[in-house]
Simulated scan of single mutants.
Amino acid sequence: MDGPGMMTPRLLLVEDEPTSRLFLKAAAAALPAQVDTAERVSEAYGMARRGGYALWLIDANLPDGSGAELLARLRADGLTTPAIAHTATCEDEERERLLAQGFAGVAVKPLSAAAWQDAIRGALGGAAASGAPAVAADTTAAPTPIWDDDAATRALGGNPTHVGALRELFLAELPAAREQVLGAARAGDLDGLRSALHKLRASAGFVGAARLDQAVRALQGRPEDHGALQRFVETTDQTFAQAPSP
């Protein structure tokens, strides 16, 4: 039987990107809450079916399906646990689509720990409404720094230790993420390119990789622009070259 369970809520976080998963889990756990994680639709479906969750936190785009498909399967099984969608897509059409598909709210990544916690509290308290606005990240004023330490520290509630840990994970994952972007671009696979950029945009924002975040956004807007792709490559090089010391 699904439902809230205990005084300390138990949450299911579904997120496949490692940096985003670590950030979202740590911020939710600080509520406090017990947070279980899943990386794929297939894994999350089994965990959610076993029940005991007060809230599902579901990524809109997963390796083996969409968050909306996962939610639809769970609703068809009679489960009524509320769910928040989280996505790196900030367009109004995407938010409206997710709300229409049954999510109680939509959080746009990257976002601060405080904004994420507020979204969770609202859903747990029944305050999230179908017309509620998405939680969007602050825009970065030009000139854009390679690393925005202040933004990253604010996002993590002022904890520089957490910023360092997230950045180490982000930099370890960045070469593979870059190759996914370049491979999709070389193959002319626009869907694959958009998917790779979608994941990278959220994690770059969480760790304050501000110039890379800007380059990713530019390439998302012009996926067939070779100049935007070249700026993305140059910016990843700069991001590595000026990586903060541990």
Rank of each mutant, 00 (worst) to 15 (best):
E93M: 10
E179C: 03
S245C: 04
T89S: 09
R73Q: 11
T236F: 08
L111P: 06
T139Q: 14
T140H: 09
E43M: 02
L219E: 12
M1P: 13
P143Q: 06
T153M: 12
D191T: 15
P18D: 02
P143G: 07
E224G: 05
G183H: 10
D138T: 13
A141L: 15
A113T: 05
Q34E: 13
I84E: 06
A33L: 13
E43A: 04
T37W: 00
G105D: 14
A241G: 05
D148F: 11
W147T: 08
A176T: 05
G51A: 09
T153N: 14
A88S: 14
V41K: 03
D191W: 05
I58D: 00
E179D: 15
Y45I: 01
E94Q: 07
A114E: 14
W147G: 12
Q34W: 10
P223F: 04
L70D: 02
P133C: 08
D237S: 15
P9Q: 05
A136F: 10
A68K: 09
A196K: 10
G188A: 06
V41C: 07
V14T: 04
D92Q: 15
V181W: 07
Y53I: 05
E179M: 12
G221C: 11
N61F: 02
G131C: 05
D92M: 13
G52H: 04
L111F: 05
A115V: 08
A132Q: 09
L174Q: 08
D64M: 01
H226F: 14
R186M: 07
A127I: 06
A100P: 04
E69C: 02
F206V: 12
A29M: 10
V14I: 03
D189M: 01
L98Y: 00
T80Y: 01
A128T: 07
T236L: 06
A155D: 05
E17S: 02
R40P: 04
G205L: 10
F232V: 13
A132W: 10
Q238K: 12
